[in-house]
């Protein structure tokens, strides 16, 4: 019998899965490109060269972290402070890549390299698709490369655009990031049992965003919501037994 992971790792399948992941992630990559342009613009204002601004996108590949780095920018940059801040902001990726075990299984150790391209958006798209029908590393890398290419490309465009700063808020463009996750949430939440982790996760994140600086609210909300879902599942089993 052919295992699902074997068929997913064949080269022809990799290519078609990669293309599917790239295309599904394309609208999201376009919306992320808006933030990439803002980042590129700010980077130019802070005196980074095009190579430095785009290089940071290719090596760090983390939007919130890069914007924070520009916020704290100095010359020479405080490398240790920046690295610690980036590490803390990205702790949420620990929980995200922990859920990629099945998706990246067929790649073995090479799967660890694939996790370097994990970001909120491509992780979310991959998990959503994986729930409908199992996907492999091809899909994950396709969705990741959509984001990666648009993120670096848009930063370059923003850097070149220089002084032309569009009033993104006025045209509702600031809402795009929220809308992407509302869309994904709608697609994911099919079962009644998803409601508790969603509500607890949202409530905990809202409270955490008020009390704690940075992006801790994502990790706190994710932990609280998922543990609430697990607790209810365990209690449910006990009462039924």
């Amino acid at each position: 019998m052919i295992q699902a992971s074997d068929t997913l790792s064949s080269p022809a399948n990799f290519r078609s899965e990669f293309a599917r992941g790239y295309l599904i992630c394309l609208p999201i990559a376009l919306s992320v490109a808006l933030f990439g342009m803002i980042y590129g613009l700010l980077a130019a204002q802070k005196g980074l060269s095009l190579v430095e601004a785009v290089g940071m996108c290719l090596i760090v590949f983390a939007g919130a972290s890069q914007l924070l780095a520009l916020e704290l920018w100095s010359l020479p940059p405080a490398a240790v402070t920046l690295a610690i801040a980036v590490f803390i902001i990205n702790l949420r990726y620990l929980m995200q890549t922990a859920t990629l075990g099945e998706v990246l299984k067929s790649w073995g150790r090479f799967g660890l390299v694939a996790t370097l391209f994990n970001a909120d958006e491509n992780w979310a798209v991959t998990m959503t698709e994986h729930q409908k029908a199992p996907v492999g590393p091809g899909f994950f890398m396709g969705s990741a490369m959509a984001l990666y290419s648009f993120w670096a490309g848009s930063a370059g465009i923003g850097w070149l655009a220089g002084g032309i700063a569009p009033d993104a808020e006025k045209y509702g463009l600031g809402f795009v990031g929220t809308a992407v996750f509302l869309f994904l949430l709608q697609g994911l939440a099919k079962k009644k049992s998803d409601l508790l982790p969603i509500l607890v996760g949202a409530a905990a994140a809202i409270a955490a965003a008020k009390l704690v600086p940075g992006t801790w609210f994502i990790l706190i909300g994710g932990l609280a919501g998922s543990l609430a879902g697990l607790a209810r599942e365990l209690l449910g089993k006990q009462t039924h037994a």
């Binding site: 949420r92 929980m95 995200q96 922990a98 859920t99 075990g101 909120d120 979310a124 998990m127 959503t128 729930q131 990031g177 929220t178 992407v180 996750f181 509302l182 994904l184 949430l185 994911l188 939440a189 998803d194 982790p197 969603i198 509500l199 607890v200 996760g201 949202a202 409530a203 905990a204 994140a205 809202i206 955490a208 965003a209 008020k210 609210f217 994502i218 706190i220 909300g221 994710g222 932990l223 609280a224 919501g225 998922s226 543990l227 609430a228 879902g229 697990l230 599942e233 365990l234």
Partner: peptide, 18 residues
């Protein structure tokens, strides 16, 4: 069982405060 609940909780956590 725990990891299954991570995506819905985290999707909600990412967009709720904004």
């Amino acid at each position: 069982a725990w990891l299954r609940h991570v995506p819905p909780a985290m999707f909600a956590a990412i967009c709720a405060p904004a």
